[in-house]
Amino acid sequence: MPLVTQWTGREVKALREAARLTLMEFAAKLGVSDRIVSRWERDGFEGIPRMVNQAALDTLLATSDPDVHGRFIGLLSVNDVVPRQLIEPADVPVVSGQYVKHPRDGKLMTQVPEGIFLSGDDDEPIWVDEFYIDTFPTTNADWARFCAATGSRPPKHWDGGRCPKSLYDHPVVEVSWKDATAYAEWAGKTLPTAEQWEKAARGTTGAVYPWGNQKTAAKCNVRETGIDRTTSVSRYHSGVSPYGVYDMVGNVWEWLSTPETPGRYELKGSAFTSPLFRGAPSSFNSADDFMQDDDTGFRCVASPDQMPAQEA
């Protein structure tokens, strides 16, 4: 699914035309007046919606079907070789806002600067060096590319060894710690340590959840949400971490590189099967490295040395 780092009137108009909606129909979906939409479109690059409207546009794009996504990309590409605001997979890293594209697996990564953060239930100050973390968990589409490149096995739930199209942007599951480590090595990355993952999830100030201290299940895919399955990794825009990282609570548990005992490794994040409180980034969980479950996946990190030089 395409991701827009900042909506302007140009992207608004492209989405409306891609969805084939009138001004009034489009405005109704966003909960604004048609005059506001008209003004955004008229102002072009200078027409920047408020943050609440940016979030509504993110949601409308995320819930659109693949045909709308294709038309949206095409409309933005008419005059630009590379659309200014649109992030699409590329063979070279591109800096766009706070996101950087990794050159190997094409995934967006978020920079987490070096420094102290408050860790654990006791908010212990801990120093963590600078690193980059995948903005989204590893998806089924990511895993399919890995399988094609390495001959690795597909997850058990893929019918006939092929991922259903409806699950392309859902997190891959039924992968063991060893499977996740193999992907990370192929991509030129590693699995996060417990400290890296926790800092990326809760920021530096000791917030209970990525979005703050409120116990708000609607911001993530957990048991209380009632969905009872994985969801698109970009669905919960209001639940992102202070660094803009998605799905750090709910959807799937994520493997870490930190061992509890030999052959057993930590997990963080909770899943659609878990109650909200289990998703607090300070919480502890672990499993044997051969465990494969339908609510367990992973994401990767990279050190600055593992990232190519970036040009602003």
Rank of each mutant, 00 (worst) to 15 (best):
L23K: 13
A141S: 08
M24A: 12
N79L: 12
G115K: 01
S119P: 10
D142G: 07
S303H: 09
A302K: 01
E174K: 03
P49F: 10
P192V: 03
V37L: 03
W253G: 00
R299Y: 12
L75W: 07
D129S: 08
D34F: 10
N221E: 01
S176G: 06
E311H: 11
P66Y: 04
S152M: 08
S283M: 15
V92K: 13
S232W: 00
R229V: 02
E260I: 10
R223M: 05
L23W: 03
L57T: 04
Q111P: 02
T204S: 12
V240T: 14
V12P: 06
V233P: 00
Q196R: 10
S232H: 00
S282W: 14
P155E: 12
Y183E: 00
S283H: 12
A207D: 12
N251L: 04
G70T: 12
V92L: 14
R10H: 03
W186Q: 07
E88A: 04
P308R: 09
D142N: 15
Y132N: 05
S96P: 05
R42Q: 13
D179K: 14
F284W: 15
F290I: 08
A149P: 02
N140E: 11
Y132V: 08
D43E: 15
D288F: 11
V233H: 01
L167V: 00
G70Y: 07
A182H: 02
H237S: 01
P103L: 11
F290E: 11
G115C: 02
R16L: 14
K29M: 15
